[in-house]
Structures are given as C-alpha cells and as structure tokens.
Amino acid sequence: MLKRVHFPPGILPYLLVAPQVAITLVFFIWPAAQAIYQSFLLEDAFGLSTEFVWFENFVALAEDPIYLGSFGRTIVFSAAVAALSMSFALVLAGFADRVARAATTYRTLLIWPYAVAPVLAGALWVFMFNPTLGILPYFLEFMGIEWNHYLNGNQAMLLVIMAAAWKQVAYNFLFYLAAMQAIPRSVIEAAAIDGAGPFRRFADIIFPLISPTTFFLLVINVTYAFFDTFGIIHAITQGGPANATTILVYKVFNDGFVGLDLGGSAAQSVVLMILVIGLTVVQFRYIEKRVQY
C-alpha cells in the first residue's frame, strides 16, 4: 500500500487530514465514547442525579424480555429481508444474463428503487396495504384474507419485510448480474456441449461460481436490514402493534428519544456498535480473500 516516492513531510499532510479527523473526533469518536460512558450510568426518574452502576444496564437488557424479543425479531426480519430480496434478484439476474443485449434495458428498469428513500418506500407500501382503502387488501379479501397490519403483528412484520426487501432488490440485482456476466463464456459453452440444459447450468455452474457474491450480498443485506430500515419501520408501523416490529435500531431511538431512558439506550447503542464492528470485520476479511483470486 506504499508509494515508492513521497513528498517531503511537513505541516501540509496534517492540514490535509485535519478536516476529516476533526469531524471524526467531534461527531463520531466523542459521541461513541459518550455512549459507552453513559451505558455505565443510571439516571433517576427526574434526571437529577446519576450513579455509576457498572454493567447493570447491560444486565437489565439481558434480562429484559422486550429487548430479547426485539433481538429475536431483528434476526427474523433481517434473515427474511435478505432471503426474499436476494432470491428475487438472483432469479431476475439469472434470466437477464441470458439476454445479453436486452440486459441493460432490463437493468435500467430494475435499478431505480435503490434511489427511493426508506421512509418513502414505507409510505408507498403502507398506502398500498391501507386496511380500509388500500388496493391489495381489497383483492386479498376475495381470497378470504382479512388484512389489517395495525392489529395483526404478523401481517405488520410481513409488510415491513416486503417494503425493505423491495428497496434492496435493485442493489442485489446489479451485483448478481455483474457477477454472472464476469463468468467466462467458455465454461458455459463447455457445459452446454456436454448436454447440460440452461437450468442445469445455472444450478451446477453459475450459482456455485457466484457464491462469493452471494456471501458478500448476504453481509450487505443483513447490515442494511439491521441499520438502514429505520425509516421503513417508522413510516409503516412505528414498531407496533405491541412491539411486533420493534427492531433494535428502532428500540434505541424509541427508548432514547421517546422513553428518555439514557442509560438503557446507551447500552443498546454499545451492543449495536459491537454488532456493526463484527459485521464490518466479516466483510473485510472476505474482501481480502476476494482480492487473492
């Protein structure tokens, strides 16, 4: 990672990194340190005095059935979002890869949900599924399904999963298509000569060859579902009904800004930071591996 030649050191390099470092210190490191510090404090109900309580906030979290429930729901939510949007994108990319020339046209028509803000995606889906007015509940009624995500927790979860997966399809499609187009045509042709049909080739050659992309996308999608779906939840369900869609990032926000439980919210922040660091490490280790190919 080193250049053989350099400019002579002096004050200049420090000036060049100064803005970035200053912002990082003020808006990243300092608040993160605050979160860690606050996670060890307990504030009384009136905010008058605080007490240093070591790991009590974390113990309280670990014993809080609502928090543990939220943890479980976050895992279900992110697994479902990743599975749904990746499989949908994989099928579309698999077919788009077959039509080399038309692939770019299809790509143009499929990529734009990436540009829609999560909260807008939430607004669109909540409108479509509005229990009294929405178009889809109207059709679901003919099938004997009564849709009301304001009352039914499972339906609320299903709705946020669909909205979150919808937004991520574009991204997954783009990476899958690029990975498939990078497979040497000679490999595919050799399989075809040996008598493998298109579906057989997809299952036995294309899918195994793009497994690094699948793994990469899995990490990205889980990270997305964990941290970037706040807007979707906030617009559609606000964590409800009865906490059915309160995922971890929503709970941090809710406990901190609505419930004003500073210590508890800070402890949750620290848990989330550890999760992000874990995911980032996985992502980087994998990317190092990819470079060696």
Binding site: P31, Q34, L272, M273
Partner: peptide
C-alpha cells in the same frame, strides 16, 4: 485507523450522544 472507525459507527447506533453534541 481513526478514519476507518467511522465506517463502524452509523448514525443510527449513536444517535442520542451525537444529538447532544450537535
């Protein structure tokens, strides 16, 4: 490394203290 750390701290996980700083 200091810059690298920002990658690991999305706004969502440290909202309350960042809000206080601002």
């Amino acid at each position: 490394w200091l810059i690298f750390i920002t990658l690991m701290l999305p706004v969502e996980v440290r909202i309350l203290p960042t809000f206080e700083v601002v």
